[in-house]
Amino acid sequence: MHRFQHSNFSRLLFFVLLGGLLFLAGNRVDELRVYQGATLAMYVVAISSLILLTGYSGQVSLGHGALMAIGGYSAALTRNYLSLPIWLCFVIAILTAAIAGAVLGTAAARLSGPYLAGTTLALAVGLPSIANQFGFLGGEQGLLFDVGMPPASFGSDFSPYKWYFWIAASSALIAIWWLQNILRSRFGRIWRAVRDNEVAAQLAGIHVGKAKTLAFTVSSGLAGLAGALLAMTIATVSPSAFPLTLSFALLTGAVLSGVTTLPGVMIGAVTLVATPEIADSISRRFASSENVTMNLPGLLVSTLLVLVVLLVPNGPVEQWRSVRARKSAHAAH
């Protein structure tokens, strides 16, 4: 008992330190990196919500972009129509997406792999398009979402992007810290039991359906937060901000991170943010044709994806762990 509390405390301490480090970093780099840092934090939240769903509860979602849209639109609507403080808009984004996730999860719990994949895919395609049906959603050009200027006490050279980064990074840290805790709790154990063997879990007295629905709800709430963060970084919400390619990108990020290893989430997020830039510098150096330049980022991500799935399907982190485990087993002999 005592040990548990201790490790809990040290983890909290670690996150606080990490936060401090990040904020120091945020002061030292240029605005583009700060902006990318905010995007990175958004991806961290979004990808970890998928990792929770897929890696820890064994469900697939091709439609997390739609849940992000729910979060983004809820935040923008409450901000614009009710003028609520920004932190409350984020909370509402989380709650709305979680409620939508609970409804969807109830249906999802009855569906196995490909059926769930199909349903969530249809949602990803279908949901953003209804913005055109209802005027208050702002149509194709969307709604503005202004989180406001940073507090005046931060000084006049504190740029809006730094403010975005602070909000996004602290949200991501809190979200990951909370997720780590929940994964170590009773719920985490239940989810893993369900993931590993549904029948055995049922025999052990676990209500499988409820466990899956809960995982979907929590995951959706996180996706909602990510959606609100995305809306913040582009200061708007619109249907085209949540295309099918976003859902696919998140899945890509989750697989690159390793779906069973939450700490690996950085790898996926960094890859998603960095690839276009790397592709850009490669093509500027070598390519002559516009066709190559424009198609290279997509090609690069796809190649990486195929390679990872073929060579290290459980993700680089898990792979590294198992290599180490094998080595230490070897050493013991």
């Binding site: 820890y56 697939v60 993931r195 989750a254 779906v259 399907p313």
Partner: peptide, 12 residues
């Protein structure tokens, strides 16, 4: 858990 997702990802 990757077994369910890996083929989808690979084909994507």
């Amino acid at each position: 858990p990757i077994a369910g997702v890996a083929p989808i990802i690979a084909t994507l």
